[in-house]
């Protein structure tokens, strides 16, 4: 078994130091969550600044509209959804290859290739049962969303959910969980919850994964327009060095920045995304802009090649939650400035 050496072993929930007094916000959030009917506006507002780890699993379920705001209905919905998912497994997944269409076989094979390459340095994801669970989630999602099917990178998007729900169920941080000790009923629950949360997440961004990935094209274009407006010297330098925004931002869009940060920081960013009232893909572009411009001075001293190598492996391993807060605040500010005034983007 691989030693848990990699940064990915860092649990989602290792630290919790959001900008406003965390204890106070945690208490408020707890109170909101305990209401018979959760005030979603209040929940979004509090979650936007980061969710305390111990409250994250249920808060995400609510924010993603997987769980209803009405507490009375919650268990019923959860049972029904988990059953519904389980019922799809024999129908879609546990079938002989001869019963799959060519398209389905292609998706199946692609997933079989990608699952072992999902967070490969993390012990948890080297476990056979966990891999099988991930494969089922991805395949069933792909089959039920034929407009896009499974696209590489969606496997990454499932991992925060698996980690989060496993931690919740095992009541341990991820690095302390021995995968071989996960009870099968726990994994079944985690798998079903992951499926539904992934589905909800992707509902808003499906055109990122349909043919030619128009959603991503649009976001990359918007990012370049934003940077042109916000940081003209950086934009000019990128142009002058012939760097295409697709060269570095495709991955940011395709995997929602998961590959740009250690897991516990990506998760913090997702707190904010899921708390957004508008589609989170709007804010995401501004976060990417804030992220890129954060490195402006450094990038402007580099040439084409060094810039791309830098951006492919940005130095975020030592970042902390405060830095993420700053990044998100900057993105929020720019979004308020530019989002509803497209004219601001038109000329320099």
């Amino acid at each position: 078994m691989l030693a848990p050496t990699h940064e990915e072993e860092e649990a989602i929930s290792t630290t919790s130091t959001p900008s406003s007094p965390p204890d106070l916000r945690a208490q408020k959030l707890k109170r909101v969550l305990q209401e018979p009917i959760v005030d979603m506006a209040q929940l979004r507002k509090l979650s936007w600044q980061g969710i305390p780890p111990e409250l994250r699993a249920n808060t995400w379920r609510l924010l993603l509209d997987y769980l209803p705001a009405n507490a009375d209905r919650r268990n019923q919905v959860l049972d029904r959804k988990r059953e519904e998912y389980s019922a799809t497994i024999p129908r879609y997944f546990d079938v002989d290859d001869t019963h799959r269409t060519n398209e389905e076989q292609t998706i199946y094979k692609q997933i079989q290739l990608d699952v072992p390459r999902t967070l490969p340095t993390m012990t948890l994801f080297q476990n056979q049962d966990v891999q099988q669970a991930l494969a089922r989630v991805l395949y069933i999602w792909g089959i039920r969303h034929p407009a896009s099917g499974y696209v590489q990178g969606i496997n990454d998007l499932a991992t925060p959910f698996i980690i989060l729900f496993l931690q919740e169920n095992m009541n341990k941080e991820i690095r302390q969980i021995d995968p071989s000790t996960i009870p099968s009923e726990v994994l079944t629950r985690v798998e079903a919850d992951t499926y539904w949360c992934l589905t909800k997440l992707l509902d808003g961004i499906q055109d990122n994964y349909t043919f030619a990935q128009p959603g991503i094209q649009r976001m990359m274009f918007k990012l370049s327009e934003l940077v042109k407006r916000i940081d003209a010297p950086l934009y000019d330098h990128l142009k002058q060095q012939e760097v295409d925004f697709a060269h570095f931002s495709f991955t940011w869009m395709n995997c929602l920045l998961l590959r740009a940060f250690p897991m516990h920081l990506s998760t913090r960013i997702w707190d904010t995304y899921l708390a957004e009232v508008e589609p989170f893909s709007i804010l995401h572009v501004y976060v990417c802009a804030a992220f890129l411009c954060h490195f402006s001075a450094e990038l402007r001293s580099k040439d084409f090649q060094d810039m791309l190598m830098f951006l492919n492996n940005p130095p975020t391993q030592s970042w902390n939650l405060q830095q993420i807060d700053v990044l998100l605040s900057q993105a929020y500010l720019w979004k308020s400035l530019y989002e509803n005034s497209p004219k601001h983007l038109n000329h320099r």
Binding site: L113, R117, F250, T251, N254
Partner: peptide, 13 residues
């Protein structure tokens, strides 16, 4: 043996 699948573009020289 344990590399992630490539997303986007990468290069080396």
């Amino acid at each position: 043996l344990d590399s992630k699948s490539t997303i986007g573009v990468e290069f080396a020289t």
